[in-house]
């Protein structure tokens, strides 16, 4: 299928997810991560990558799945001005999807709230869940900011 929207497909837990290819800048083996104190658990730290320093988010932890110690990959994604490393189980492929075939997400898909999803779609490999990356990352950012404020104001 040459027509359609190119999507990067990756595994997380038992599900298969997709994000538009233009949001993915690179796919890397996870480099050494420097943890940052006083951040929420899903922010696993920062990495130095070709001259820039990126915060890294463990997408499993972000969605409340159990952490996985297996071989993992990092997708470097961009939303707005911010570049972030996303740790996923394994990046599979880039496929093209038919945007018209995308259905609205159910309230909960693979344990993730609908708000973070763009939709779901049947493919030859099974169900593909399209993530709303902007939303996922903005929410993560806001939660971290709230965490910082909580700590700074001394409220426990």
């Amino acid at each position: 299928m040459m027509e359609g929207l190119p999507v990067v497909v990756f595994d997380l837990g038992t599900e298969r997810y997709g994000v538009p290819v233009e949001q993915v800048l690179a796919v890397e083996w996870v480099p050494p991560i420097t943890p940052i104190p006083h951040t929420l658990p899903f922010i696993v730290g920062v990495v130095s990558l070709r001259g820039s320093i990126l915060p890294v988010i463990d997408l499993r932890v972000r969605f409340g799945f159990p952490r996985s110690g297996d071989s993992q990959q990092m997708m470097v994604v961009r939303t707005g001005e911010v570049e972030v490393g996303l740790i996923v189980d394994a990046v599979q492929d880039v496929i093209r999807i038919d945007p018209d075939a995308v259905e609205p997400p159910p309230a909960l898909a693979g344990g993730i709230e609908a708000a973070y999803l763009r939709g779901v779609l049947q493919t030859e490999h099974g169900v593909l869940v399209l993530l709303n990356l902007d939303r996922v990352l903005t929410d993560a950012e806001q939660r971290q900011v709230a965490e910082v404020q909580r700590r700074a104001s001394g409220v426990s």
Binding site: P32, T34, I36, H38, V47, S48, V82, V84, Q144
Partner: peptide, 27 residues
């Protein structure tokens, strides 16, 4: 100095990030 952005901007004690000669990150 790489100034903080996004996720790290609000961390009170963290003024910025930097890469050392060996490629590791320092706060």
């Amino acid at each position: 100095n790489h100034p903080n952005a996004g996720y790290l901007a609000g961390i009170d004690w963290l003024a910025g990030l930097t890469t050392l000669g060996d490629g590791s990150v320092a706060f």
